[in-house]
Simulated assay, not measured.
Amino acid sequence: MASIAPWKQALDAHIQTLACPTFSLATASQVGGLTAPHVRTLVFRGFYAELPVNKYNPVSGNTGFRSDLIAFTTDKRMEKFRDLGGVEGVASSSLPTVTNNVEACFWIPSDENPMIGKQWRIRGRCFVLPRDLETEDRGVKQTKKWLIEKLSREGGGDGSGFDFAKEYKAHFGNLSPVLRGSFRNPLPGAPKELGDGGLMPKCPIGDDQLDEEVALSHFRVAVIEPTRVEYLDLEGRTKTIWVPVGSDAEKNEKLENFGKVADSWREVEVWP
């Protein structure tokens, strides 16, 4: 059973103040033998297993579970999917192939002065989850086992009994009708001069149309497992770092003898 990280409550409280909970995601991929950086603006879809309630979504997520995993969604046809290691095929869901080191950055502007505020940087491993976590594929079973260990149940216990298919469908239902419809549009990023590939731009997918198979086949949920968290408060002029005890981040930054430890995380105040 995973314990809840000591930084989570503060991060969540700050995200709740945002009118639109967006964050920047930095990745790096190999293009033509060169490392190509990418920064994308994504929407925070809640901590995995804690899907925000949407009154327009007829499909509810799981209740009574929680995690520290940061969730977002993507289209498997996008470049982002490939940058994160997503590959369709027999081994596409194995833990080693659907992971990449990333860094997410949230900016929380001050009410008094938008030029200053609070910044959260979360470094970690990103996993593109397979659509179906109930198959007998060895990689899928590994991913499901990993997820169960990362989840915790309110009152005690791990993620055993978590309905992954329900969570997948609920994430799709939590999107706006227009965004749902985009998952059955022509190939993202392809020049329009090549045609629509047999997929004409479609109308939005309503709340009563959540079984649209073409859109669902392209839709994926991804999660970030934090391995280093940094909080900078420009108003209070403070900066705090959290790293898992015994982790590479703790060793590389030589933090073993500093700060305090709570729930397997080391918290260290540093100079801004």
Rank of each mutant, 00 (worst) to 15 (best):
V229K: 01
C20W: 11
K141F: 10
S247I: 03
H14A: 10
V102R: 00
D158K: 07
G157R: 11
G155F: 07
R220K: 08
Y168H: 07
P21K: 05
P130L: 08
V39L: 08
K202H: 15
G61S: 03
L51N: 02
D248A: 06
T27I: 07
S152E: 06
R180V: 04
F127H: 08
D248N: 03
D132A: 12
S93M: 12
D196L: 13
Q209R: 15
E212D: 14
D111W: 12
A28P: 01
E250V: 00
C20G: 05
S264P: 01
F183D: 00
R121D: 02
V268L: 03
Q16K: 07
A13Y: 09
V214A: 14
R125G: 03
G89N: 15
V128M: 06
G155L: 09
F258R: 13
F164P: 05
F72T: 04
K55F: 10
S247R: 04
V245P: 04
G206H: 15
V270G: 01
V59L: 11
S110M: 12
D132H: 15
D83G: 06
V43G: 02
W146C: 06
D233N: 11
V140S: 10
S152V: 08
G197N: 11
D111L: 14
I148K: 06
E136F: 15
P226V: 07
L25D: 00
T143K: 07
A170K: 01
T41N: 09
L95S: 09
W107Q: 08
K144W: 07
K239N: 01
S67V: 01
F47V: 03
L255F: 05
K251I: 05
M115W: 15
T238R: 06
F164V: 06
G157N: 08
G85F: 11
W242A: 05
E112W: 14
Q119A: 07
V221G: 03
G259Q: 08
I108K: 10
N174E: 02
F47D: 00
T63H: 13
W146R: 08
N100E: 14
K202Q: 15
S247F: 01
T143S: 12
W146D: 04
E167T: 05
D263H: 13
Y56D: 13
W120R: 02
V31Q: 14
T97A: 14
I224Y: 03
A28M: 08
L129Q: 04
S217H: 09
L69Y: 01
V214K: 14
E134H: 15
R125Q: 11
P6A: 10
G198A: 11
K192R: 14
G206I: 13
H38S: 09
F183P: 01
L95I: 15
N100V: 10
K239T: 05
G198L: 12
T17L: 07
T135R: 11
C20T: 12
K80W: 10
K150D: 07
S176Y: 06
